[in-house]
Nucleic acid binder design. Structure first.
Length: 255
DNA sequence: ATGGTGGGCATCCCA
């Protein structure tokens, strides 16, 4: 099973890109972020024509997540973090086969020390408490999405320039560590320990052409699922297309 | 220190 994640930065704009990429990459499950589309307007019939069922949790203008699957979802989906009051649509969990899939659009945080930064850390702590419970009932789990955190300096094109900046700061990396400490593993790093592999490049300053990027889109796998992961990677091709998202898909393969 | 680009939307907010 190929499981992927992509922050599409508006599904309205990127639907043609998504359709092309589904045909090219043939994923079985896809987690989307920043769909920016209300549920009433989600293009589920168009995706059905492409062979994918969808569940979604969106809002107008900002945020929004969705899960696509070639096989039926095995359970009702969860669309909010339990016991955490949050109007922003950033999480979606569902089950495919015997694998629990948790799609996260982590808060960006704007600037270290800002109000949004405090919200980011509170939000991740609430996610941690939720995943701790989910892992008890669903030991086979993939937690994937736009984490808005580069795990370490290998994931940053210029660590000196990004030192303690948003997406790279110690409090954010500690927060990510608190998730990994639940028994989750960064699938990309099971297969590749090199620097210079990124999943997001700023639209400005021709960042993609210069590979001025960060690896902030992650697919984490649980202890129980880890032995079943056979490959993981980043698909840079969609970032080269006309009018791209600023993120590109990341994926993993299970046996 | 600043601003560069893009999406949504209709004015700046968010990334």
């Amino acid at each position: 099973m190929k499981i992927a994640s992509w922050n599409v930065n508006s599904l309205n704009v990127r639907m043609p890109h998504l359709a092309q990429w589904l045909r090219d990459a043939q994923p079985d499950v896809v987690a989307l972020q920043e769909t920016k589309v209300e549920d009433e307007r989600f293009p589920d019939s168009q995706l059905a024509e492409l062979g994918y069922r969808s569940v979604f949790c969106g809002q107008k203008t900002y945020n929004g997540v969705a899960l696509l699957s070639r096989v039926p979802f095995a359970s009702e989906c969860v669309t909010a973090i339990p016991n955490f009051d949050d109007p922003q649509k950033r999480v979606l969990a569902a089950t495919v086969g015997d694998v629990r899939i948790v799609d996260l659009y982590v808060v960006n945080g704007e600037k270290v020390g800002s109000e949004k930064f405090a919200y980011k850390l509170r939000w991740i702590e609430a996610v941690r408490a939720w995943l701790r419970e989910e892992l008890i009932t669903h030991p086979n789990m993939v937690v994937l999405g736009d984490f808005n955190i580069a795990p370490d300096d290998r994931d940053v094109h210029d660590p000196k320039r990004w030192r303690e900046k948003i997406l790279c700061s110690t409090p954010e990396r500690d927060a990510l560590r608190s998730l990994l400490d639940l028994g989750l593993h960064d699938s990309f790093r099971l297969f590749n320990d090199e620097p210079g592999h990124h999943s997001w490049w700023d639209y400005r300053l021709a960042a993609f052409q210069r590979n001025w990027g960060l690896r902030i889109d992650l697919a984490l796998v649980s202890d129980a699922l880890r032995p079943r992961i056979t490959a993981a990677g980043i698909d840079k091709a969609p970032r080269t297309w006309e009018r791209p998202s600023d993120h590109t898909p990341v994926w993993l393969q299970t046996d």
